[in-house]
Design a protein around this nucleic acid. Sequence first.
RNA 1: GGCCUGUUCGUCUAGUGGUUAGGACAGUAGGUUUUCAACCUACCAACAGGAGUUCGAUUCUCCUACAGGCUACCA
Length: 501
Amino acid sequence: MILNKQMEDKSYNNNTRVRFAPSPTGFLHIGSARTAFFNWLFAQKSNGKFILRIEDTDIARHQENTVNLIMNSLKWLGINWDEGPDVGGDYGPYRQSMRINIYKEYAQKLLNEKKAYLCFCSPEVLKKKKEVALKADKFYRYDRKCLKLSRKDINQNLNKGIDYVIRFLVPDNKIINFNDTVYGQISIDTKIIEDFIIVRSNGLATYNYSAVIDDILMKITHVIRGEDHLSNTPKQILIYNALNTKPPSFTHLPMILGQDGTKLSKRHGSISIESYKDEGFLPEAVLNYLALLGWSYGEKTTIFSKDDLIKKFNLNSINKKPAKFDYSKLLWLNGHYIRNSDNEILKELIKERMLKNINFKSDDTLIKSTENLDEKLDKIIPLIKERPKTLQECDSLISPFFFKIKYSTEIINYFKNKEISATKILNGAINSLSGPIVNSEDIEKNLRLLSEKLDVSFRKIAELIRIAIWASKVSPPLFGTIEILGKELTLERLKNYKNLL
RNA sequence: GGCCUGUUCGUCUAGUGGUUAGGACAGUAGGUUUUCAACCUACCAACAGGAGUUCGAUUCUCCUACAGGCUACCA
């Protein structure tokens, strides 16, 4: 075991270069975030470089603003890159749309070496051939019609201006072997791989080709990506071979699925990192949860800080089984991280959300005093921090301190048919809270006295006061709440509620 | 259709040729408590199925089933 670890540590060296290569078709997907994170962790652990590359070869699908969206989400998670479109680096540019000529150059090289050829077959014709084959339950693969074209035919076609693509010539009768860190030894016979297109008729490279060119030129040593790319790997290895370069090490990560076992998508709930941020998740919790999907350490550890993960993370202990995304475990983890957050940090996060969501100047449901927001939050946060699972829940736990409360009909009628005399208790409470009160201990003492005096259980009294001052059956600890609310506001709410009865 | 990959409690996972198959989340019950949480205790709950190898298989092999991926001028 120890020996293993040492051997493995040897393979880490600071020449390690990994990359995260998202396609900017939308926000940062939770599954992509894990891929990015595992790459990042491996780079940190190896003292290597983490590269961000934008795979925007498909102009039709890519949207410019999503590049920033993705970068912002990565930054929010604390996943920083050593080289990338914004920070540059020695192997740029880091956007495929800016590397078109590079792909062309290498395609020409392959063409010259007869490792690739021009194909003039139209997509319509090919589609038809494919349909026919599939209908007959036959295996389909491109028939290499254009490989047989003579120089003369080719020139004629070119002169006529017929659209063409460049296809990679897949060698016959070869077995591609590679060793995946997670899935082990994989062998594929080239007879099932067709001569795939590497440059489209519009001159742009396709994924399986451009990714390899970039990985070669960017000196990527370890490719860590989703399991959906496992089947693409043999094709890519073919290109490494054709260019006489050594393929990197491959690690494919098991997929993240929705609760029903299908691909994680919008109907399963939030899938973008952005929405987790908005819902009030902490990046630490999200990363911790993501790390637990497909990877584990030892037998009993679940909570990992980022530093822990850098120390303990290990590609060899990634498992093969696809994982279903469990929102409730993430919630639990987030609650854990909120509870254990530093109060100052929590305050800043909460403040940021408050300031973003409300307009203090014009909101007329606001209670006058927000000028000493910091001071108030300093008191409120220790009172509530054990409760919320998200920052969003913090917002609502805190809001009655700052906003006017509204009694629902359920709350107004709550004591209607109960045997206690709400009015009497409220009067008593108003009375006993009107005296000199310093802190929550005094408040509790006075209310316990009231309980004795009226011969009503303390629980009942607390319930009634809670409902009166919070318009809810649930509140932060009552006495602390009253203390922070202040005598004036507390009495006002008690009276208001009494008048509604 | 072809090829690749996978299958341990509901979920994430640990683990082994002989274990009462361990932990965490969720769930249930109880305790604590001014409510809700938090916290503590207990409970619930799994080796997909079938052959084979073996004294013995959850563990090794094969088959089946199911699931996922690839099979695009998407990435």
